[in-house]
């Protein structure tokens, strides 16, 4: 309880720090909204060229894009800047975080909370709403719950991927943008029906790493479509389980990484 108050106080401090530079904060807020809009528009471009892609229409694919966009943006908005860890490791400034009586990950998340990405969340949710409206969904209680849990599970899953790829820095300081292949690369992967990818690539990313359960399977369940790849309809409801498994693995890797921290000379 006392720890929660500590995090709440840190969060308040973060807000006041961010607004210390009002103009640049406002400009970044607006430009960031544009970022997500551009990302999503690539889907429209693709479907402009071909009416049906991977066996799905634009409206159906938009459901996957919407689930991905809202889940990813939620993760990006909260833990997205954890990739700053490499700066902390390189400069040795993680020392200052480690001497405080709080867990390392929440401290870093709060200290680097990218508030400027707030508008992206609005765009992400808008896409999801448009997707829901443009499809004729046969509503059941299960589907209604899934519509809310799938983006949240997606956020947890992407959050885990953010933490995992940031953890690379504990072992490999020059990890650079390698992690981005899995975070931003993963987002692009799940924005489209996974039927468009080659067998080998799909097996690794969608099922080996679990990206298939972020948007593709929940979208199929919401739309009431059978999986062209043959998985049963309940596969869509697996998304929270896959997300929790990913979060568990990320937690273990992170803890191991913190023990592995070498600091720097001072």
């Amino acid at each position: 309880m006392a720890e929660l108050r500590a995090y709440a106080a840190l969060l308040g401090g973060r807000f006041r720090s961010a607004t210390a530079y009002r103009t640049s904060f406002a400009v970044e807020l607006i430009t960031n909204a544009g970022g997500t809009a551009v990302d999503v528009s690539t889907v429209f471009v693709l479907f402009h060229a071909a009416k049906v892609v991977g066996g799905f229409t634009l409206g159906e694919a938009l459901m996957m894009t919407g689930l991905t966009a809202s889940g990813f943006v939620l993760a990006d908005l909260t833990v997205g800047n954890v990739d700053q860890l490499k700066t902390y490791v390189r400069n040795g400034t993680l020392d200052a975080v480690l001497v405080r009586p709080l867990a390392v990950l929440p401290q870093l998340v709060i200290a680097d909370l990218p508030l400027r990405k707030l508008m992206r969340f609005v765009v992400g949710v808008t896409v999801l709403v448009v997707a829901v409206l443009s499809n004729d969904i046969d509503w059941t209680p299960g589907r209604a719950v899934l519509l809310v849990t799938a983006p949240l599970a997606g956020a947890v899953f992407f959050g885990a991927i953010f933490v995992l790829s940031a953890s690379l820095a504990f072992w490999w300081v020059e990890s650079g943008e390698v992690g981005a292949a899995f975070t931003y690369g993963g987002r692009d992967f799940t924005s489209y029906p996974i039927t468009v990818y080659g067998t080998w690539f799909r097996a690794v990313f969608a099922y080996g790493l679990g990206f298939g359960f972020v948007a593709y399977h929940p979208a199929l369940t919401l739309l009431g479509r059978a999986d062209p790849l043959g998985l049963p309809a309940w596969a869509g409801y697996l998304s929270p389980l896959v997300a929790l498994a990913a979060a568990g693995i990320a937690g273990i890797v992170w803890r191991t990484g913190v023990r592995h921290y070498r600091s720097t000379g001072s």
Binding site: A9, G13, R16, G92, D95, A96, R100, P101, S266
Partner: peptide
Amino acid sequence: GVVFGQRSQLWWDLPLGESFRLLRYVYR
């Protein structure tokens, strides 16, 4: 208590007094 000369415990963009106020919550 730890003072690492090169690693600040303070919040860069906030007034000094604000850092002290936050630390009260951090250390309960």
